[in-house]
Design a protein around this nucleic acid. Structure first.
Lengths: 208, 208
DNA sequence: TTCGTCTGAATGAGCGGTCACTCATCAAAG
DNA sequence: CTTTGATGAGTGACCGCTCATTCAGACGAA
């Protein structure tokens, strides 16, 4: 019933309607965000997605694969966006500001996704290690390289360990996001990027 | 078997041997750190603690209560230590440095506990909210008040939002800890506190 | 256009395994 | 004998996943 089966008009000849996969991913993000991955039932995801339990397994091998898929897409999108948006900029300080803004804008725009990333991702060393090895490491590298660029340009103190400094910036942004999620108050996340960058750039700049 | 039942000689008249509670907490920290809270079985905790499954329930109402107990003890210990160690200091900058050092020293000294705090605690909005409302909030307040003290003393830029700045410091330290846990390399965590503080204090200081 | 056939996407009841928690029983101490 | 901490096999609920079955619609023949 519901019969929202109206054949996708953009591809009328295709029998498969593969945006069910999309619906499942969306639903899973919502359900995982609400109850936590381990407390969520595949049946709930299916219900929210508007499909039968079994259908989930036509698109995903397991419950775990759904979570992994949400991560992978989120991370690669974020990194691609950051690379694309900083490519045109020259000043490393502007690049960092842009990265920070994008970081908080993305999370601020989709609370469910933000919860899954800030909370569920951390909730399992298994996923963490996997993610840490792939996505996070690349993201930190992007920040680190930008920092080193600034060091070579004489903008940032040369004696600082860029790896550690990158983690400081990431950690600060990360904490903004986590606090935003947990806060009962409703406020804009993205503008905090400027406050963080203000202090951060001040901290790492060569004496003016 | 094993019969490590040798009556505690320090309190020979007490029939109860309440450090079984301690053993269970220790075991749970270890087991949770290894497999994650949701993947851990109560039976594993009991086995590691050297007691029977049922004994766990003589000391804790549920599996969840064990986790909660680990948190509560950890947080209150940490806050008490931070308060005690900073009370004797005058310079807000020194206070912050002490707090940061203690933060990373504590986590660096007990990897299992660190994993539970950095990973498991984050893995559930439920716990997070609870913890955030209680422990973390108080910890952030301690940092914020120290920052405001520094602002009044003219050491830190007065126009900064102390609440946000406190989160930045906490986030940076938190990220150091998380990275340390996930890193396959073995290094000392505590010294990073100085690098963080260096950049941080530079970032928030009034122009010298 | 209409009918018959075939395909494979979708379904959801049910299976099988897991695990938090209980409780009848025990044993040592007083 | 009573009390009390401890035991661990048992139980019942839960839930991820499977698979026999259904049926909408594509396609070809007439």
């Amino acid at each position: 019933m519901r019969s929202a089966r109206s054949v996708n008009p953009s591809s009328p000849s295709r029998p498969a309607v593969p945006d069910k996969r999309e619906a499942i991913l969306r639903a899973a993000t919502k359900v995982f965000a609400e109850s936590g991955y381990f407390n969520s039932k595949v049946a709930d995801v299916a219900r929210v997605a508007g499909v039968a339990d079994g259908t989930v397994y036509l698109y995903f091998k397991s419950k775990e694969e759904i979570l992994r898929c949400i991560f992978e897409r989120g991370v690669s999108d974020a990194i691609a966006a950051a690379r694309a948006e900083t490519a045109a900029l020259d000043d490393p300080r502007e690049k960092l500001r842009r990265i920070a803004r994008l970081h908080l804008e993305r999370l601020g725009a989709d609370r469910d996704l933000a919860v899954v990333f800030q909370v569920e991702l951390r909730g399992s060393t298994k996923f963490m290690e996997e993610f840490s090895a792939a996505g996070l490491a690349e993201y930190l590298r992007l920040i680190r390289e930008t920092l080193e660029e600034g060091q070579r340009a004489g903008l940032f103190r040369a004696e600082l360990n860029a790896k550690v400094v990158a983690k400081i910036l990431f950690g600060a942004l990360d904490e903004m996001a986590t606090n935003w999620i947990l806060s009962p108050r409703s406020y804009k996340l993205a503008p905090l990027a400027d406050q963080v960058l203000d202090i951060f750039l001040n901290g790492v700049s060569s004496s003016k």
